[in-house]
């Protein structure tokens, strides 16, 4: 197979991580694309949950927003926002949370609030949304984001969402029941928490990327697994279905 983008590799790698999951709390953007691809590929029964209160949404095209009408009309049921957070997310009823961010640090803590100082930011970002509780309560979290020295940083400008805090033991000290980010997928590779330190460690390189490329795009001293593997290239079927999802979205973008 030839001719695929780094974004396609990233999205497909993220969709593979949903194998075996029963339900997934989904944010708009890359996570939503990956989760819908997983449903199309290998997880037809995956229950997609959007924070607008749509549970079991089965969109035929990529939703434009978290409350797209397509999500409501295809959902198993639609509930209020207090119910989605208090009854469904908080008790850990949703297996997997998929998240993105503007900045991440070595312990998979996330910033979606500001670049620069809080009082006088150089870039004001949207803020927390549902991410902090998704990362707290879901038994496991998957993070998908493009990688550069600006996004993979040594120190976050603002800590919006806790991944592993300052490392081993931090989550239980903070009373966070879920495991935390099991995996981080970028456009260069895949990272998993070290079982001792909980630092995100490069475990798989996407096709065409080198360890040097990943180091150059990481703002901290990168840990590399001694069992580093190469990410299997996207298959024809994966690429076909991903491109079909995008195409359906571009020709039918209403609501």
């Amino acid at each position: 197979m030839s001719g695929f983008s780094t974004d396609e590799t990233m999205t497909i790698a993220a969709s593979r991580e949903l194998a075996g999951a029963r339900s997934c709390f989904v944010g708009i953007g890359l996570p939503s694309i990956a989760a819908n691809l997983a449903r199309a590929l290998h997880a037809p029964g995956l229950v997609l949950v959007y924070e607008s209160g749509t549970v079991g949404a089965k969109p035929t095209r990529l939703p434009l927003s978290i409350g797209d009408g397509e999500l409501a009309t295809t959902a198993d049921f639609v509930i209020s926002v207090p119910e989605i957070f208090n009854y469904w997310l908080q008790p850990g009823r949703i297996d997997v949370g998929m998240l993105g961010a503007a900045q991440i640090d070595r312990f998979a803590n996330l910033n979606t609030t500001v670049i620069g100082s809080y009082e006088r930011p150089s870039v004001r970002l949207p803020g927390a949304g549902g991410a902090p509780e998704i990362a707290t309560a879901c038994p496991r979290a998957i993070i998908v984001m493009r990688q550069s020295k600006r996004t993979f940083v040594d120190k976050l400008d603002f800590l919006t969402t806790i991944g592993f805090g300052d490392g081993n033991g931090a989550r239980s000290r903070l009373g966070m029941p879920g495991f935390g980010p099991r995996v981080l997928i970028s456009d260069l590779g895949i990272f998993r928490p070290d079982p001792e330190t909980f630092e995100m460690t490069l475990t798989s390189l996407h096709s065409g990327a080198t360890v040097a490329d990943v180091r150059d795009a990481t703002g901290w001293d990168l840990a590399v697994s001694k069992d580093l593997v190469e990410t299997p290239e996207p298959t024809e079927e994966e690429l076909l279905l991903l491109r079909r999802l995008h195409a359906a979205s571009n020709t039918n973008a209403v609501n």
């Binding site: 509780e133 800590l159 969402t161 805090g165 931090a170 029941p177």
Partner: peptide
């Protein structure tokens, strides 16, 4: 009451 905010900068502001 809810299970949230622990350790975040959001709660500091």
């Amino acid at each position: 009451v809810l299970r949230a905010y622990a350790g975040t900068d959001t709660s500091q502001h």
